[in-house]
Design a protein around this nucleic acid. Structure first.
Lengths: 335, 335
DNA sequence: CTGTTAGCGCGTTCAC
DNA sequence: GTGAACGCGCTAACAG
């Protein structure tokens, strides 16, 4: 044996063709356009193929069709519990259409995001950017090369799926007002985050509607630690309840309260956003559900539709949210 | 203009070649083997190339070289907090070597895992299987086609990175014994999980060493809910402490205890595994650290090394663990 | 319904 | 040093 291409030369269409006594094209069709062939021919070829261990070469197919069968999915931080459900849902949608997904982690950096996209662009049909940290210009730049769908980023002209916290936050404010709270605080997240801006505005609007006083307290980043650290600042405002940018921050706040001997919810009420902790905290966290998995599913489906119909459209899908009342909210303490 | 291949036909090597007055081969070399060409020739070609907007076609190159520059990363469930840090670390390692990573979610199903791998195999250089649910035969099958590295799956002959809970669990048992516990329970996870089997054995061994009585209680799956639901069974054993398969299950147990008015840790001690919750629970969870991120980094580095050196080797990297004592363990209550 | 002939864009022997 | 062929594995017109 002279060479034979290493020890493991994968069988190709010709191998199957020979073994089946047909030509390559027939084998090709058996996989791509089965309805163009005789039923029995197809099944026979498929059987022989799998017995030989033949698997279509994705790359070769891509080269001749120009369709890659891959999509890129880029998120700021896989580690943030908001994203995994979204990723999982997007995956499943892609799977159903036989698409492979490249995952990219931008680490909250637009440079990294840009770099990843440049690497992906040569082998994907479309892009799915989640909470992109890119400038609008750069987003447009990438969108000009490949069909693109955004999640939680509102750029005119580019299909996007937005989780609208408005309704949920509104309900949260109403809930607090009904309990008798007069003074609350919003603990903000990353300033570059579209979601954060949206929630902050929703809180302000809601507070106006219900005549509550609201202070904005900035957590440096959205994390358990920063939530815990910002508690003194929160208490200093004299508020009796807090709405946090996300559940992780809210969870940190709960611990911070406990550290200082402030009991939740009897002495202070806490509301999170995203509902990523489920009922896993103690007391279980009252939060604004954001259904990140639905966003992932909707966005990927939208992207795949675009890829098939070649239509562009300026879709703007909005997912509304609602308040999930659990155990961290109650009437404010009497003075 | 009849067709022209859509509105945006990306320039190819011939375009650059014509514009530069050379042949395709020369352009090719200018990118792959610059040292084989005249210094000026190279710079001239590179300049013209970028001015035309030429970008090498990743796919075409892959087809002719057989090197894809991609790797596949498959996990059972992105949603399980154990995996995201691992994924992130693996990503970063791949990034450094300019590799793109396909992410696959097997949904705890070997069929799905198998299907994904078949889809990936045509466009990757290597496979990284995390806590694979595949049979040893099938793992060998895939490993025969592409260089493969396993995480938390011990298959002889295939490079693997194993998080050895032995040491950490040993410490946990010693810790409980020192506190005065006599009777404990191990709450097991998925029976097909290598980690679960390993932890169960470690608990048994440790209990023997320290003369503790241990009961095994099976949580149907590793989740918050199942942990919570299994609490009555745990209490029925008469044990005063529990070691859970993972943090999520442990967290559920904590809540279940609270539901029944059993306070942790004064009345019952709880220890988790994985340290994925950080100090985020209340009280903060005593747990066995497993450094999933290090496993991800080590495994990806190992895989990339294999891809470069073509050496096979039967590497078996072991990551040891240790106990992190926090707030959910104390002396057992007096009877 | 099925076989034949061309390429897809690029890397790589070969000659020059 | 550089250009001319061939082939990677597969799909896409064409015939038959």
């Amino acid at each position: 044996m002279i060479q034979g291409k290493g020890q493991n030369a994968r069988p190709t269409m010709v191998d199957v063709a020979n073994a089946a006594g047909v030509s390559k094209s027939t084998v090709s069709r058996a996989f791509s356009q089965p309805e163009m062939l005789g039923t029995e021919t197809v099944s026979r070829i498929l059987e022989i193929a799998s017995s030989i261990g033949y698997v279509p070469n994705h790359t070769a197919r891509a080269l001749s069709t120009g369709r890659y069968g891959n999509v890129a999915l880029v998120v700021p931080d896989v580690t943030n519990p908001f994203f995994p459900p979204l990723i999982r849902a997007a995956q499943m949608s892609a799977d159903l259409a036989d698409y492979c997904v490249f995952l990219g982690n931008s680490d909250e950096s637009w440079r990294q995001e840009d770099k990843l996209l440049d690497r992906f662009v040569g082998q994907v049909d479309g892009l799915l950017l989640v909470a992109s940290r890119l400038s609008e210009e750069r987003i447009h730049g990438h969108a000009a090369r490949k069909p693109t769908v955004l999640i939680n980023r509102d750029v005119r002209g580019i299909p996007r799926v937005l989780i609208d916290s408005g309704q949920g936050v509104q309900e949260a404010i109403a809930h607090l007002a009904a309990l008798g709270h007069k003074r609350i605080v919003y603990v903000s997240g990353p300033s570059t985050s579209w979601s954060n801006q949206q929630r902050r505005n929703a809180v302000r609007q809601g507070a106006r509607d219900f005549h509550l006083h609201v202070d904005i307290v900035a957590a440096r980043v959205a994390s358990y630690e920063s939530g815990r650290a910002v508690v003194p600042t929160i208490l200093a405002t004299g508020a009796s309840a807090a709405i946090a940018f996300d559940d992780v921050t809210a969870h940190g706040i709960m611990t911070g309260m406990a550290d200082l001997g402030v009991s939740v919810p009897s002495s202070f009420s806490v509301i999170g956003c995203d509902d990523v902790l489920g009922a896993a905290t103690y007391p279980s966290l009252t939060t604004v559900s954001t259904r990140s998995d639905e966003a992932g599913h909707a966005a990927m489906s939208l992207l795949l539709d675009l890829l098939n119909s070649r239509s562009v459209g300026d879709a703007r899908i909005t997912l509304d949210t609602h308040l999930v009342v659990r155990g961290t909210t109650s009437a404010p303490p009497r003075r």
